[in-house]
Simulated assay, not measured.
Amino acid sequence: MALKVIADECIGCELCVNVCPDVFEMNAEGKSVVKPGADENAPCVDEAIDSCPTSAIVKE
């Protein structure tokens, strides 16, 4: 499974970055993205998914 942030749904609130900074970061457009090479199975990923107010983080 691949972890993905749907850019059109991300509002840039940074909750995922605060919850899981080893996996998520903000890009130049103010949207969250998955860091290259990040551990997409890190324990904090599920909490970040649950914390996202727009459900922009998905596992595909």
Rank of each mutant, 00 (worst) to 15 (best):
K31T: 06
D22Y: 13
D46A: 10
G37W: 02
L3A: 07
S51W: 10
E9V: 04
A2I: 12
V23F: 07
K4F: 13
C16F: 03
S32L: 07
N18R: 15
G30Q: 07
E40D: 02
T54R: 10
E14Q: 13
E29T: 08
S32I: 04
K35F: 04
C20M: 01
F24D: 01
D39G: 00
D22F: 10
N27C: 06
K4C: 01
K35L: 03
V45D: 03
E40V: 09
I6L: 14
E29D: 14
V23W: 07
E47Y: 01
I6H: 10
A38K: 00
V33I: 15
C10K: 07
G12A: 05
V34I: 14
C13E: 08
K4Q: 14
E14F: 09
T54I: 02
V19G: 03
A7I: 12
C20D: 00
E9Y: 13
S55A: 12
M1V: 13
L3C: 08
K4G: 01
G37Y: 01
C20R: 04
A42M: 04
T54E: 14
F24R: 01
A38F: 00
E14T: 15
I6R: 12
E29N: 12
K31Y: 12
V33A: 04
C52K: 06
E9K: 15
I49T: 10
D50R: 14
E60H: 03
V23D: 00
A2V: 13
C52W: 06
E29M: 13
V45E: 00
P53V: 06
P36M: 00
K59H: 08
N27M: 08
A2Y: 12
D39R: 01
L3R: 06
A28V: 09
